[in-house]
């Protein structure tokens, strides 16, 4: 046995392997003369799977940083520093972190490798097990952490999605009239604010049922509620999908018709609505008869259109319809004259 310099000690290959299963033993000329079991397993798994022993370090690995590492003399200069290496010839570049130290007898170096941050992928693609890492290595803890963290994130995402669903349902509920399923006054304000802000032209109809109080008085509130639901259905079927139909009071409704500013078309829609609402409604053997009075205004008559002002004008036109005998629609006129629909 050769005599070792003071302060040095011998370690056999098996002991070294237990502590550093990814080491490479290098001869003074840069030939690989031994390697750890995990590194050997890794190379076995590569498609080109060839024996590492006897090959030149610099032919086998690309030493990327520090730059200019091309010989054992260069490696010796950087002994003890952090190295970045990639295995040549691997299908997907397999990156390592490395640390090389000189052997005490001057006969070569030991280069230890680790996967660095790529460890999770490396373990997956090479089927490494607990036994492939030194007992002191924290790789398995890192894998645990990645997996536990993924689980926790999934749970959080699930919670976030459920909360979002509940929030949307609550919002929809806050904008819906519970009796008829139509939009409510709050929803109407939002739509009006959006349309006036975006300067999109629209028509606005204010509808008030005629003789509704009589239905309530003679047949009771259940009949009244039934009539309101039928009215809601009729209003929705006489309007387009993107129109807003809102119930804004006991028997008052507002319809917003985006893009509709021609009096002719608005008039036709109003007539159809009145026609539909005049049809008798059956409820538990009784026949309920109502009608509707409508006031209409158009955003293009205002500069700028203001939601409050428009609703007030539509309301005035509505009362003009009521005064003129009900069951009809009138437009708010810019110069104060009202055209009868």
């Amino acid at each position: 046995m050769s005599k070792l310099p003071p302060g040095s000690f011998a370690l056999n290959a098996d002991a070294l392997n237990r502590m550093m299963p990814m080491h490479v033993r290098l001869a003074a000329d840069g030939r690989i003369i031994g390697c750890g079991s995990t590194l050997a397993k890794l190379l076995d798994n590569l498609p080109e799977g060839q024996d590492l022993i006897g090959r030149d370090l610099f032919d086998t690995f690309e030493l990327r940083r520090p730059s200019g590492l091309a010989s054992m003399a260069d490696l010796h200069v950087h002994a003890g520093e952090k190295l970045h290496l990639t295995l040549r010839g691997a299908g997907r570049p397999l990156a390592f972190r490395g640390l090389a130290v000189d052997l005490a007898d001057g006969a070569g170096m030991i280069l230890n490798l680790s996967f660095g941050i790529g460890v999770v992928d490396a373990v997956r693609s090479h089927g490494l097990t607990d036994g492939d890492f030194a007992a002191t290595d924290l790789t398995v803890e890192m894998l645990y952490l990645v997996e536990a963290n993924t689980g926790a994130m999934q749970a959080l995402r699930g919670l976030a999605q459920r909360l979002e669903g509940a929030k949307q349902a609550a919002e929809a509920q806050a904008l819906t009239d519970t009796l008829t399923g139509l939009r409510n006054r709050r929803a109407l304000s939002l739509v009006l604010a959006q349309l006036t802000l975006g300067k999109s032209p629209f028509g606005l109809m204010h509808i008030d049922l005629d003789y509704f109080k009589a239905v309530n008085d003679s047949f009771g509130h259940a009949a009244g509620d039934h009539v309101l639901r039928r009215v809601a259905e009729a209003l929705q079927s006489e309007t387009r999908g993107h129109d807003t139909v809102a119930r804004v009071g006991g028997d008052e409704f507002v319809i917003i018709l985006p893009g509709l500013t021609e009096t002719g078309r608005l008039d036709a829609i109003a007539r159809r609505i009145i026609e539909a609402l005049t049809q008798p409604i059956r409820f538990e053997g009784q026949t309920c008869r109502i009608s509707a009075s409508i006031g209409i205004t158009i955003s293009t008559q205002y500069d700028p259109p203001e939601p409050d002002r428009m609703q007030q004008d539509a309301d005035e036109a509505l009362y003009a319809s009521k005064r003129a005998g009900r069951g009809q629609a009138q437009f708010h006129g810019s110069d104060g004259d009202r055209r009868r629909a």
Binding site: V120, L128, T129, V140, L143
Partner: peptide, 10 residues
């Protein structure tokens, strides 16, 4: 025999 456990395969 233990139930299989593979480090990298969720």
């Amino acid at each position: 025999p233990a139930r299989p456990f593979n480090l990298g395969v969720v």
